[in-house]
Design a protein around this nucleic acid. Sequence first.
DNA 1: TCGATCTGTTAATGAGCGTTAACGCATTCC
DNA 2: GGAATGCGTTAACGCTCATTAACAGATCGA
Lengths: 203, 203
Amino acid sequence: MATRTDAPTRREQILKEAARLFAERGFHGVGVDEIGAAVGISGPGLYRHFAGKDAMLTELLVGISDSLLTGAKRRLAEAGEATGSEAVLDSLIEGHIDFALDDRPLITLHDRELDRLRDADRKTVRQLQRQYVELWVGVLRQVYPAIAEPAARSAVHSVFGLLNSTPHLGRPGSLPGRAVTASLLHRMARGAFEAVAGERCGE
Amino acid sequence: MATRTDAPTRREQILKEAARLFAERGFHGVGVDEIGAAVGISGPGLYRHFAGKDAMLTELLVGISDSLLTGAKRRLAEAGEATGSEAVLDSLIEGHIDFALDDRPLITLHDRELDRLRDADRKTVRQLQRQYVELWVGVLRQVYPAIAEPAARSAVHSVFGLLNSTPHLGRPGSLPGRAVTASLLHRMARGAFEAVAGERCGE
DNA sequence: TCGATCTGTTAATGAGCGTTAACGCATTCC
DNA sequence: GGAATGCGTTAACGCTCATTAACAGATCGA
């Protein structure tokens, strides 16, 4: 009963538009009236759905970090049983790329507005992010045991920087096509990791 | 006459502190009183040195883009005469890494606060950035002629994302040492480019 | 020595903005 | 049918904050 995917609730509309606006002009650069206008209601009407402007940002950032971590755990469990750790690493990369290509505003918020959170919430987000990184580090070192842990952690952060560059790649229309871009990013990420492991192939 | 490097002028102090504060809390998240306090004067005293808060951000962003482009041109000219394009690419990477490691607040501002500029200034910065990217694209395609131009441009943007990840690498103290980090980033950048060129070495 | 300039100060102004108050109208549930 | 609840509205409050005004002490050239 109900349509195939339920119609987006008002809360979801608001979150989506708020994410877009925050990414475009920064948290402090967007007024509540603007967010309201983006969903067809005006200003203070938002307070029927959220405790305040801060609450929207909090929910967005916690949601991002949580869904990244949850997705990674699922991929680790699914692919980890049957296939090897190579496949798990590829699956992690693929998942992160999907996120980076499909939710570009969230990617932008993710590392840009973290400091605008209340201490407790920021701590929560940081903890989720840390777990996500450590999960990658574990898989990476399984594929490349030669990489020491500090180097692995740096490498993972840097590859996130690489994958998260999608907002700078021009408007979705100007991209060579989603699949092509995804493949390019995937190869670059693997190439970067291999380079850390010291597998030089040229000269 | 005067000390080896002239004492930093008041303008320079202000720019430096403003960059740090903008990077930490965002352009709109920092008040002029805070910037003033950071250099020992208070609030409106800044207006003896800058037309306004916007002018500080403008000067910072134009300065960054300009110095990146100027440095790249110089490296292209210097290394381009004697050595081959491989060496030029390495020199470009090295220069960008130096900047990313030494001026982390500026790196942060660079791709975070561009939209806060007046239209004319934003256009200027974008143009400088575009020239910088195109310079990289040219060198990259000289080293790897197999890479088509759109892919090269995407690859360059993504490698910038990788190199600009330094602010996420933890406080300067926690890094394994500047030289080690620089070398790691350099290898990853080269590895990412090589992967785009299709030079698979494993399997 | 006497202005002029440079570089500060504090007080006031005025706009923008998050939030709350007070109110209205459907819908729903007893 | 009527109260409760959900979801809006507009108006008002209060605070923050960039900017300007008005003023003052050094430094310095004529």
